[in-house]
Amino acid sequence: MNAENVKSQMRKGVLEYCILLILEKEPAYTSDIIQKLQEAKLIVVEGTLYPLLTRLKNSGLLSYQWIESTQGPPRKYYKLTQDGEAFLKELENSWQELNDTINHIKENF
């Protein structure tokens, strides 16, 4: 059992949830998402996000829009679709459950 492995799986597990949470507030560009994740101390490189965002978009949870940028070429801004919002609700519930489970175990055993 490798601690690094488990940790990276945990990070991976919550990464999608975190991205959806960030996009719930407002549409965002990939580097904005990265910055917010870094502010929240979840370290990922940009390269991890592109396949993930494309996957989420292909499964209909996200959609994107090209927005002109002052600093260069137009950028893809991702936002949550209705399906995405419903999905986020589900994730929220299961996160709550997980949190409760961990707390319960920590306090009672």
Partner: peptide
Amino acid sequence: DFEARIAELLDE
């Protein structure tokens, strides 16, 4: 996406 972002970073 990768190429676009790399292009943007290099353009900076």
